[in-house]
């Protein structure tokens, strides 16, 4: 399991979530939305950023080289 700092669009704080190496970014987005769901209603169409850069939603944690304590953001729009 890889712990990362995670920030969901519309949320008021940063979280730490644990990722599996074979998880896709779609799954990571779902995990983060579930973790923040007490404050932010889950919704579709958000984009995942890894270390500030948009990533392929079907790329896995391992293929992107996600390291412990990297930053994941879930943002609206085109991610820029």
């Amino acid at each position: 399991m890889i712990p990362v700092y995670a920030f969901a669009a519309g949320d008021t704080l940063g979280l730490v979530i644990l990722l599996d190496e074979d998880q896709t970014m779609v799954s990571v987005a779902e995990r983060l939305q579930a973790s923040a769901s007490v404050r932010v209603a889950p919704r579709p169409g958000l984009i995942v950023l890894h270390e500030g850069r948009p990533v392929d939603p079907y790329a896995t944690v391992a293929s992107l080289g996600v390291r412990p304590l990297d930053r994941i953001d879930l943002v609206e729009g085109d991610g820029r």
Partner: peptide
Amino acid sequence: VHGTAIVAFCDLCQLVLCGGTPKRNTATS
């Protein structure tokens, strides 16, 4: 109506990462 995920903390002030706005958290590493 309660969070369960691990909360992230600042390595200087030791408070939760609540800088910025809901649209742009100002956390920096």
